[in-house]
Design a protein around this nucleic acid. Structure first.
Lengths: 359, 359
DNA sequence: TTGAAAGCGCTAACAG
DNA sequence: CTGTTAGCGCTTTCAA
């Protein structure tokens, strides 16, 4: 392979001169500059990023950690993040924890070996305790689409106002006149969504009885199963006229079950989702949902992360912090400006919701 | 940060002894072994992979290049590949070319700087000429889900028998009794699927008139638009009773349009897709489709790639080939065993197809 | 303006 | 068994 040394020899200069030319730093006479450039091209020189990264302690790579890509929400946001990162000349290293905390830790541990400059951690793909552990050692991290609207351990975070999202869903269903309302939720991860929803119902004088809450695990299949459960209480409770699923993917499953039962959406049962994944708009009926501004989420997350990376590389004299002894050697982060950014969700009314036929 | 040197000093041994202990190679007395291990743990040692990679000329990272992740087919196969690669202790570097050859080349170029040990290139995310260029220089590459059943430039390839897939779709529709059949295809990329389809129709005495072929770009929206076009010929041709879309994503778009028109699927129009993405099974009606065995594709692709990587790292004395002068210095690859693996597609009958109502 | 030299952290021969 | 030494390719002082 061709190294700067090869170029140096060919051009009759020193290695460092070549380095200077290539990096644009330092003063080099135009003549030698051209000569070096000429040979670089001639020999087919290609910089060795490993070597460069080793000496610079930076990789210009960011890890994107997410719990799954089976739920289309993640690929969608992933696409957005990767796109932005690339514009800033960063590579994206994709890590799928498959919703397994142990696996998440293991992957993170591996990545910590100086592989990446920072981490965007999505959903609830990792144990917050593990994350905080790394963050405290100075590792640039940003939580994205985190499920709680508090910043645990001061880790910068950009997420959706999920409480508000729950409220929006409730308001919509109430406005349509629904009173028998059920929820499918991935507890405890999506607790806030449920709370927002519950709060608004309560303000309207409605309680959410346990039989009207079914648990899911965010997968489509679990939405299907949860809906079945909701429709088969039968005993004391009349069946719901509306279902709010705390994500679209489960909502699709719920809708599938409802249709399988021979019921109509929205005539017999209204369904509201949350996320606004692409397919939701293309179903029959198109899904009413609470939309999450994914691009915005992606933008703010990368912004927050790159800011940290820049800061770290400056502070530490171009040496990015790495998990080490983790003791007082590392400068403690000062509490910066509020590291929590909340983006607002919005209601998208489509055709899976309507007024209930009768009370 | 803690280096092996720190451990060596703490344990009172030499750097290389530490290296030996850590790598498990070489003979080390149990006593020193324990001592080294003790200090490694104590100091919170974490190997620096950059350094290791630099000296080993390997990164244990594979790039997965794909044209988009908007079409759910890609995330699905991506998940499979990442999973397998991780089991083999490789990281996956995800690259989205957004269907743009220029962008693909650019990304590839960057990756070539010794970032990754090999490439799995999917769909038609890159210009085959560019790929061949790298491959000739000895870069481990495998084409996956490539659209032509020939191995251009002898690049190892694992793909689906798309010609057969087209045949399966046609056979199914013919068996149901359809005669007015239309196709939505992403030409020329998916030419084989069309050809298989056309061939079978022809054997049944049916031609595919140009008005019954609509072009799409593999996106859902293009499927929608193509279906509109197919249904609005109106003039001379009677509308089709069945539509074959060369991928599920377009099929969903087509189905959406058909339903938007107030027509029923399958009563008025049958629809067949190709890919068998997860959502297809959960639509109303569930989509009949030609399934691609994604896991198998993923497995064979990684297998083929890792074989190349191993071979390369052995041959070149543990130095992985890199794009360099590209002249005769690099040993030309010998034509190995047929580098084309074809996996068979299969028909999955669901409810989007039925016999036409009348002729 | 250019060059020499000392790292970055790890691996790998080769001596002792 | 252990230590010494010489790299991997690039960056970065610091002299010349």
């Amino acid at each position: 392979m061709v190294t700067i040394y090869d170029i140096a020899r060919a051009a009759g200069v020193a290695k460092s001169t070549v380095a200077n030319v290539l990096s644009g730093k330092g003063k080099v006479s135009e003549a030698t500059r051209q000569r070096v450039l000429y040979y670089a091209r001639e020999l087919g020189y290609r910089p060795n990023l490993l070597a460069r990264n080793l000496s610079q302690h930076r990789t210009f790579t960011v890890a994107l950690i997410l719990p799954t890509i089976a739920n289309p929400f993640y690929p969608e946001i992933m696409e957005a993040i990767e796109h932005i990162l690339r514009q800033r000349d960063y590579q994206t290293l994709f890590c799928n924890t498959h919703g397994d905390f142990a696996l998440g830790r293991q992957q993170m541990e591996r990545l910590m070996s100086r592989w990446v400059d920072g981490y965007i951690i999505m959903g609830s793909s990792m144990d917050i305790a593990d994350i905080a552990h790394y963050f405290r050692q100075g590792v640039p991290i940003v939580l994205c689409d985190w499920q709680e609207n508090e910043s645990p351990s001061d880790i910068p975070q950009v997420t959706v106002d999920f409480f508000r999202a729950g409220q929006l869903a409730a308001e919509h269903l109430l406005a349509l006149g629904h009173r028998r309302i059920a929820v499918i939720v991935d507890e405890p991860q999506q607790h806030l969504r449920l709370e927002g929803f519950r709060t608004t119902l309560r303000q309207a004088g409605l309680e959410l009885p346990p039989d009207r809450i079914a648990l899911g695990d965010s997968s489509l299949e679990s939405g299907y199963a949860a809906a079945r459960q909701l429709l088969s209480v039968g005993q004391e409770l009349a069946p719901p006229t509306a279902i709010f699923a705390t994500n679209d993917w489960m909502a699709l499953g719920a809708m599938e079950l409802v249709l399988d039962r021979g019921l109509r959406v929205p005539e017999d049962i209204s369904i509201v989702g949350l996320d606004d994944i692409v397919v939701s708009a293309h179903l029959r009926p198109p899904l009413t949902t609470i939309a999450i501004p994914k691009t915005r989420l992606a933008q703010e997350a990368t912004e927050l992360l790159l800011a940290q990376i820049e800061a770290a590389s400056r502070e530490q004299g171009h040496e990015l912090p790495l998990a080490g002894e983790g003791n007082d050697g590392a400068p403690q982060r000062q509490a910066e400006t509020a590291p929590l950014r909340l983006v607002p969700p919005s209601l998208v009314v489509r055709q899976s919701t309507a007024a209930p036929v009768s009370s």
